[in-house]
Amino acid sequence: MSDLVTYLTRLGDNTLVLGHRLSEWCGRGPALEEDIALANTALDLIGQTQMWLGYAAEAEAKGRTADDLAMGRDVWDFRNLLLLEQPNGDFGRTIMRSFLFDHWHLLMLRGLTQVSDARMAGIAAKAVKEVAYHADRSAELVVGLGDGTEESHRRMQDALDRLWPYVGEMFIGDEVDAATAAEFGAPVPDMLRAPWDDAVLPILAQATLTVPDGAFAHQGGKTGARHTEHLGHMLTTMQWLHRAYPGANW
């Protein structure tokens, strides 16, 4: 796989996996308004997936489509961050997972709007508006729930403690990142940590949440080397229809 294809696949798999996770809430949200908001966000992310994986499929030039990539690959071919495949848990954990990712995603897309590859920059320019809203919304909920009742605070702190070891992977660059940075001026993950801290830490403080100690980072999602067991279960559900009825259409 070329560096460009890997890079685009990572972007598309991030939005696909989180989009599918959020869609699991459809019809189960804690309030009608939240249910609709989560479904809207899921749809935004699936729309972005079509653009990223569509481009990846074309760049790969093996005659595959975005649908083939989404529905026809198995766990070891996915390149999403481990954070995003973690199960939804309760509403608080779902929101915390989105919050941690949204701010990284926003920084990433802002950088991508500036790359020399016009198609990549165009996709980023479209996605960045949606993601700015996602980041705004998840931040507001983190503050509302973190600085809410005793129970909501406890659930948000539990969520942060559980998900924190998956934060580090977002900021660990590799040779693919280096190559796309050199070729297109794509953002280098390591450089996003400081602005992410600047955006996220004050919000967590406002939410009266304590950032866990330790910088241990689970890795293996974006390289595909070591996904957590959760991704396989998720794909089983997500890909079931296409695997049972290949090419089904309506």
Partner: peptide
């Protein structure tokens, strides 16, 4: 109409429920 905890959340919910 819709339910929301405060004005900021009402604004976001309105965006999601009514301006999609």
């Amino acid at each position: 109409s819709l339910h929301a905890a405060d004005a900021a959340m009402a604004m976001k919910n309105a965006r999601d429920v009514y301006t999609r």
